[in-house]
Design a protein around this nucleic acid. Structure first.
Lengths: 345, 345
DNA sequence: TTTAAACCTGCAATCGATTGCTTGAATTAT
DNA sequence: ATAATTCAAGCAATCGATTGCAGGTTTAAA
């Protein structure tokens, strides 16, 4: 690690006996520089292996061309796909991406957000942690004049741009599909109700039952069945009931659905004939289990692109004030074997 | 987005009738400031919702406390786990992470690396794209005095810090396991040989065969079977041979192994009794297929932490020159049903 | 009481790039 | 040939934080 000094515009200027101003203008392709000198400067810059110091440039220009992303977990399929989508768009616009993960911890989320504010990022994209009900740190982002875009797990009260899946509609579609297949006692494994997505999925579930005039049975609704283990535990209880359900909607995730499948198999319930299973998220493994699991695809990569585009669209019109709005991406029901009571798929 | 001006140290100084120097010193907890004024400054800073401008600070200090990461794909299980591991460590050290993906494109990789150099990152962590054999851009990183750490897919010739899996040993273990199970005609689906990891896996395969005195049969070695589709295609050819193999090592990935499994099933080869399958990477789905797939775990999250720690260790001793060295993480063979010819697992 | 040391605080330069303003030269129009 | 315009390039301030040096005050030591 020798601290070899990097060439600056001054080095180039000195070598060519001109001022740094001209060098800067040439490098920014301004038309206030003679074409010949511009070429000469560019050539010299290349020779000296010049790399613009973005820190200085951004400081001067008061922008950072950087977007911060905070997600619960980078290595969760849905989020890494969203990030990948965001990256594809931001890269094409020459923006940098700073990635943080909250690990579902409210405290870490706050620290990450503050770190990003310090960095003077132009925008913060966030999907909030499961913990926490207090969102001063997000209000703080807005107070600093930084664009804030929430996605997937959003805080309704905050006036920001939001990109979400239509969880309620997707669930409605999914449950309706179950009912059409002939399932009548449909259980719900629900997630923490402080997160909007889980509230919406529950709402979709209830709406579907009402729509099809099915009774809502309290004992078929299991709280907080987020992980595979909790999903399995909930399923064990459900299937031990005097009148067990004939279908289970693992609203929290496909992992939970996997737990359902494993318990069902071990308790000798036949899937899908005796028990239908509906998951959420279209994790890659859902098409590999036997039977494969019916689930809901969230178009995560596309969602990432939508988010990034939203930012650039919005930052385009600096004159008009930001209008808080929500873009809803329509998820898609992926029908597979685990819910095909009637036909073979 | 109102361009609300952010408070600077000058605002604080003006309010308290002191100079920015003192404010700066107070904020940096220097002991050259009176305790009382320090407290007052900190209090005022909090009141004014002051956030240090890292750009200015870094520009002045000539450091960025930022690490750049370039991987082929963010949303690939192995890489997102490594990134997650890196993040956990860098976060605890107050460093930022800028993430880029090359999408396996050499050109994009070069652009990403240059963008990171522009950003004045302190370190670049990279796993190179499959494309490309020319690594001037990485040499360029070193020439700029930026620490460079390669991982997994490394370029041997470059004198840098490297963190790798012992691919050869892992493969040796895997193939030996196959042989012990009684498989005798073991095929290899190999990856692009410009990548070190695939060369090493091939080397391990050959070494294992020699060690156990098995013949090396050219027609059982299939080039470039990287994806699930290519793996399937290669398998179709292999299983159509007059003397088909009795085991296939999908050295490129578990996805390729999945292709093998699907083709084998559709061609009515019984796994594992008639065909053993060995994958690589321990993707989550490998334990969900039927039969589950034997594979090799790379301890990706741990690898990420190792990489980040290596950087901080190295940056600790600025006085001594960097000694290029390689840290080898030992992967682990995960034995599952797809190779259990003898016993049931 | 005098001298030395310790302690605060301010001044001003610095990091590298950008940009409004100005000047001088070259070009065009009258 | 002279005035008007265009063009190129330089000057100097600016973005916000940091830091070596210097000046002034207070405290401790002689």
């Amino acid at each position: 690690m020798k601290p070899k000094k990097r060439t600056t515009i001054y080095d180039i200027a000195a070598k060519l006996n001109i001022t740094a101003s001209s060098v800067s203008r040439a490098l920014n392709n301004s038309n206030h520089v003679n074409e010949d000198t511009k070429k000469l400067i560019l050539k010299t810059a290349a020779e000296l292996n010049y790399k613009r110091n973005i820190l200085a440039s951004n400081l001067r220009k008061g922008e950072s061309k950087t977007i911060g992303v905070v997600v619960p977990r980078i290595n969760q399929n849905f989020f890494s796909n969203v990030i990948s989508g965001i990256e594809e768009t931001t890269y094409s616009k020459d923006f940098n991406l700073i990635i943080c993960q909250s690990n579902e911890s409210h405290d870490k989320e706050i620290k990450c957000v503050n770190a990003l504010i310090n960095q003077h990022v132009d925008c913060i994209i966030i999907s909030v942690a499961a913990e926490g009900t207090d969102y001063k740190h997000l209000q703080n982002v807005l107070d600093h004049g930084i664009q804030l875009i929430q996605f997937d797990r959003v805080v309704d009260e905050l006036q920001t741009l939001k990109v979400i899946n239509d969880n309620e509609q997707a669930t409605l579609d999914g449950i309706s599909h179950l009912i059409e297949q002939g399932y009548k006692r449909i259980a719900l494994l629900e997630g923490p109700q402080n997160l909007n997505i889980f509230r919406q999925r529950k709402a979709g579930y209830l709406k579907a039952l009402r729509k099809h005039k099915l009774p809502i049975i309290e004992e078929l609704i299991v709280e907080n069945a987020w992980t595979k283990e909790l999903g399995a535990e909930g399923t064990r209880k459900l299937l031990s009931l005097p009148e067990p359900p004939d279908a289970i909607f693992a609203s929290t995730s496909d992992f939970s659905a996997l737990g359902v499948l494993e318990v069902a198999t071990s308790m000798n319930f036949k899937v899908p004939s005796e028990l239908g299973i509906l998951g959420y998220a279209n994790e890659p493994f859902t098409e590999l289990t036997s039977p494969s699991i019916t689930t809901i695809d969230q178009f995560s990569n596309h969602m990432g692109k939508t988010i990034a585009n939203l930012y650039f669209e919005e930052s385009g019109n600096k004159d008009t004030a930001m209008v808080p709005r929500t873009i809803s991406v329509q998820p898609k029901l992926i029908i597979r074997a685990s819910t095909s009571k009637n036909q073979n798929i």
